[in-house]
Amino acid sequence: MQDTSPTPAISTRALTKHYGPVRALSDLTLDVRQGEIFGFLGPNGSGKSTTIRTLLGFLHATSGAASVLGMDVGRESVEIRRLTGYLPGGIALYDSLTGEEVLDYLVDMQGREPYRRGELCERLELSTAVLKRKVRDYSRGMRQKIGVVQALQHDPELAILDEPTEGLDPLMQQAFYRILDDLRREGRTVFFSSHVLSEVERLCDRVAIIRAGHLMAIHDVPELLARRRRRVTLRWRGVAPDPTSLPGLEDAEVDGNRIIGTLSGEVAGFVRAIASPNLEDLTIEPASLEEAFLEYYATTETPT
C-alpha cells in the first residue's frame, strides 16, 4: 500500500556525529511531524546543538541520514535554509549595526519579505526607538528578542530554535510562548531545544530526550504527564487507614491523621477508593514535567 502520510518536517535515520574519539551523536533516529511543536530536551553537552547544526548543514554527519522538509541535509542545505528560520543558542549579532539594520540585512540575505516582523516586534516590545539603537547597546534579553524576530520574521515553514527563551524575562517568555501557539495554529512546525522543562510542558506536542548523544525516549507530552507520579496528602478525621489498602499509593508515610505519599497511574480509581465521610482533606499536587523527567532519568541507565 502506498504511504500517504505527510513527509516529516525533520527526519533522521541513525544520524551519527563523531569528533575524533568523541561521540557527539549516536544513531539518532526521529521524525518531527509537520505542524507540531517538538521539544528536544537534554542537559548541556547532550548533543542537542550538534543535531541542530547537522540539520542545517554546519556539521557533516559521520554516518546516517537526515532530511528537513523532505530535502537531504547534505545535498539541499541551501534550499532547506531558505524555508527555515534558525535561532542559534546564545545568538551573536553585528554590534556595529542597529537592530533594524541587522533584521534588514538578514531578511535580505534570506530572500524573503519580513511578513511577520511588525507583529513580532510589537509582541516582543521592540519599539522603533529600540530598533534604531546599535546592537552593542542592547541587553542580553534584547539581543535574544532580535534573535527571535530574525528567525521568524520571514514566516518560515520550519523554525529551529536553540534554547529560545534564554535571556528573556518571564513576561517576554510568555509573549514568546503565545507566538509559538499561534505558529502551531497556523500549521508551522517548530523544533526547539531546551533544558527548561516547564516550557516544554507548556508548549510541546512531543518531546525527545537526548543524553550523551543518545536518544533516550520520544514521548507525547500529555502521555508523559499522565504517567508521572503525583504527590498526595490525605487528612482524616480520627485515625488514618492502613495506606497499603489505598490503590496506587506508594512511599506512603503516616503522620497521625495524615498520609503523605506518591500516586502513580490512574487518579480516578484512587479517588474512588479513598471516598469516605472520614476524609477531611485531599491534596494532589501535579508533578511537573521536570519531576517526570528526573524520574525517567533515575530509572534509565546512562548510555556509555
Binding site: 554546519f58 541551501v78 534550499e79 535554509r81 531558505r82 545568538i91 551573536a92 538578514l106 540575505m109 534570506q110
Partner: peptide, 14 residues
C-alpha cells in the same frame, strides 16, 4: 569567533 557566521550561514547562501 564572534558567532555571526552561523547567523549568516543560516540564510540560503552556500
Amino acid at each position: 569567533a564572534r558567532g555571526t557566521l552561523e547567523v549568516l550561514l543560516a540564510r540560503p547562501i552556500s
